[in-house]
């Protein structure tokens, strides 16, 4: 499984440009008694970047974590409603969250490489999922992943050095390489550029645009410019509710809802 484009899950681009990959219906999330996410309906399509925007605390991360069941780890969090991945219920009792997370990868706000070598960081996922039978296959996966994450040129001479020794931007791209090494179908990114400088941010954004060819991407961002640059679809959250969703261009030029308009223009000054 070295060529991502040929994996059974990511189908050719043209035929299903509008194919829904993940669909949320009436999703509510509670932390204890507190309702953090209220009746969200949202479709995320194949080979598109969906941006989630909204003020702090509106539930963007919460929604993102629903998609790969990372909320399971949070004490007292409960999810209701239905979430479908390729028509399969994500919260189905039969579905092993471990397998789900191999199909839905995640990149976190703060770069969090393992305190192991760069090679081991990328090789870990393929190894636990038994994706490589020989060392050569594993090498190949690691190299292609680093290549796709745009990091190979910078690190190819120091694969045995610790991943934590890289710069912040390099670490984040290492985390992206680590996520794509398991050939997921969907990649969730929670403010992946918030700890990066503009140059590193530009690199990651470029990368996201390229990854779109093979993956479905959902990205949380606080930067309007970033949402406008990288996404095809934007969803605006406010106080746990999904206020508005639409094509990114449309959304930024003619927002329908006054809250959306306020948020977007407020941000632009």
């Amino acid at each position: 499984m070295n060529s991502f484009a040929n994996t059974p899950h990511s189908k050719p681009l043209e035929t299903d440009r509008r194919m829904v990959k993940v669909s949320a219906r009436d999703v509510c999330v509670r932390y204890g008694d507190k309702l953090a996410l209220k009746h969200v309906d949202l479709d995320m399509e194949c080979n598109q970047v969906t941006a989630l925007i909204g003020p702090s605390g509106c539930g963007k991360s919460t929604f993102l974590r629903c998609i790969n069941r990372m909320n399971d780890l949070i004490e007292g969090a409960s999810v209701s409603g239905s979430l479908m991945l390729d028509g399969q219920d994500i919260y189905d009792r039969e579905l092993d969250p471990v397998l789900l997370r191999a199909r839905v990868g995640m990149v976190f706000q703060k770069p969090n490489p393992f305190p192991k070598s760069i090679y081991e960081n990328v090789a870990y996922g393929p190894r636990i999922h038994g994706m490589a039978n020989t060392r050569d296959e594993l090498d190949e996966i690691v190299m292609t992943s680093l290549e796709k994450a745009g990091l190979l040129a910078e690190v190819k001479d120091r694969l045995e050095e610790s991943g934590t020794g890289l710069s912040g931007g390099q670490q984040q791209r290492l985390c992206i390489a680590r996520a794509i090494a398991v050939s997921p179908e969907v990649i969730l990114m929670d403010e992946p550029c918030s700890a990066l400088d503009p140059i590193a941010t530009a690199k990651v954004e470029e990368l996201i645009d390229e990854l779109r060819q093979n993956f479905t991407i959902v990205i949380v961002t606080h930067s309007m410019q970033q949402a406008a640059r990288v996404s095809q679809k934007t969803a605006f959250f406010h106080l746990g509710e999904l206020i508005e969703v639409g094509e990114t261009e449309e959304m930024f030029t003619t927002p329908r809802h006054s809250l959306t308009q306020g948020y977007i223009t407020g941000r632009f000054g």
Partner: peptide, 27 residues
């Protein structure tokens, strides 16, 4: 052990025991 390490491993699809044995315990 920082929770970010657990999240990273869990997000890659490691089972609970794998997260503990491969990452948390060595650290």
């Amino acid at each position: 052990v920082p929770p970010s390490i657990r999240q990273a491993a869990t997000g890659l699809g490691a089972s609970k025991l794998q997260v503990v044995l491969h990452h948390v315990l060595p650290l």
